Amino acid sequence: MSIQHFRVALIPFFAAFCLPVFAHPETLVKVKDAEDQLGARVGYIELDLNSGKILESFRPEERFPMMSTFKVLLCGAVLSRVDAGQEQLGRRIHYSQNDLVEYSPVTEKHLTDGMTVRELCSAAITMSDNTAANLLLTTIGGPKELTAFLHNMGDHVTRLDRWEPELNEAIPNDERDTTMPAAMATTLRKLLTGELLTLASRQQLIDWMEADKVAGPLLRSALPAGWFIADKSGAGERGSRGIIAALGPDGKPSRIVVIYTTGSQATMDERNRQIAEIGASLIKHW
């Protein structure tokens, strides 16, 4: 067993022997301040990774656009098919120029040779490549099948209805392509620590998230040296922004954090800054 596999296998073990965790309302004060600064709703939840206990939450059962955070769930569904012998990570998928959609920095470079399922998941999570996500959605049967996968996990809230990039439209009061912070946090925890996926697939999923290259201005910008984070960000229309993450000190994750916002007129930089400040408060009061 590799060191990384050992780390993920012992996530519940280490967490069980940690000192009790206590909620700190100071972080919620910052979440509410972010709402004021952005002029928009902000949803927040913080779960203990081992027990699933909610440590703090704000608007945990209000719907927010998922945006690209759905790509972690998508690759979880792909990995479940791999575990069941219905898919192979090494299978190569070929596609054409007509398949390319807006923001496809990886797939646009491989029109000639195609990409493997493993490479597509890596591109979808680490670079948020939209064509990679659409190609992977095709392998599982489309958005409705991802929703069905989530329902089978016990998540009857999260739903995907459309493809990239239309799913980022974020129309107010439109339930399409949305989740709730509580539902997303619980589902992410199941994917990373539950028995739904094999140990190898859980490790692969967290490795992809740990290698995320496009979430630097968010929670990662607030992390002290030595902290662990595996995350996936999302951005959408109407001032929408979000991030889902597993993080913790001492090089291992111990909490799940989900943050979503929508309806702001603020710039992307300002949305990023507010999420980073929430992260800084979380870490300060850990």
Rank of each mutant, 00 (worst) to 15 (best):
N50F: 13
A245R: 03
R59E: 04
H151M: 08
L160A: 08
I283F: 10
E270C: 12
L49G: 07
N134P: 04
G248C: 04
M209N: 13
G226L: 11
T187F: 07
G39P: 06
D48S: 15
G226Y: 09
V106M: 14
V257Y: 10
I275L: 14
P224G: 06
S254A: 02
F58H: 00
L137N: 11
L79F: 12
D33C: 02
L188W: 12
A230V: 12
I125Q: 00
D129C: 00
G194H: 00
F70P: 03
G194N: 13
Q204F: 01
K71N: 02
H156P: 06
D36T: 09
V117H: 15
A222Q: 04
L188A: 08
E108Y: 00
R273A: 11
Q274C: 14
R202W: 07
D231Y: 13
K284A: 07
E119L: 14
Q88Y: 08
I243D: 02
L199R: 08
P224L: 05
A200M: 13
D113V: 00
L28R: 10
R162N: 12
S264M: 02
I256H: 07
T112Y: 06
A84P: 14
M180R: 10
T262L: 06
V78I: 01
A133K: 03
L146C: 14
V157H: 02
A182T: 09
V78N: 12
C75P: 09
E237M: 12
E56L: 14
K53M: 06
D113L: 00
V214C: 14
S254Q: 08
D48N: 07
A124R: 09
A183G: 07
E87I: 08
R271G: 11
G90V: 06
G239L: 10
N152A: 10
L111E: 01
E56K: 13
D113F: 00
W208L: 04
M153V: 09
G52R: 06
E46I: 10
T267Y: 07
A211E: 08
T69Q: 13
Y103H: 13
L160Y: 07
T112W: 15
E102I: 14
A280E: 09
I206A: 12
T107E: 03
D177C: 10
D155H: 06
D174A: 03
R238P: 04
Y260T: 04
A183W: 06
S80G: 07
E26T: 15
A230W: 10
L188V: 09
L49Q: 04
S264N: 01
W163H: 12
W227G: 06
M115H: 12
R91T: 07
Q265R: 09
T147L: 04
Q88N: 15
R91S: 06
F228C: 02
L199E: 09
S201K: 12
F228Q: 01
C75L: 15
L49Y: 09
L120Y: 14
K252L: 09
R273E: 06
S281T: 07
S57W: 12
P217Y: 04
N98W: 00
K144P: 10
V106L: 14
L74C: 12
I54L: 08
K32A: 07
P224D: 12
D113N: 00
S240V: 07
L197E: 13
N272A: 00
P143Q: 03
T158A: 04
L219H: 08
F149A: 09
P143T: 09
Y95V: 05
M66H: 02
F70A: 06
R241M: 06
D161L: 09
A182Q: 12
L197Y: 06
W227N: 10
Y95R: 02
V157T: 07
R189D: 11
V214M: 14
L74S: 13
Q88C: 15
L199F: 14
Q204Y: 03
R159V: 06
L205C: 05
G85C: 15
I229W: 02
D36K: 15
W286E: 02
E62V: 00
G216F: 13
G251L: 07
R238Y: 12
S221M: 13
F228M: 01
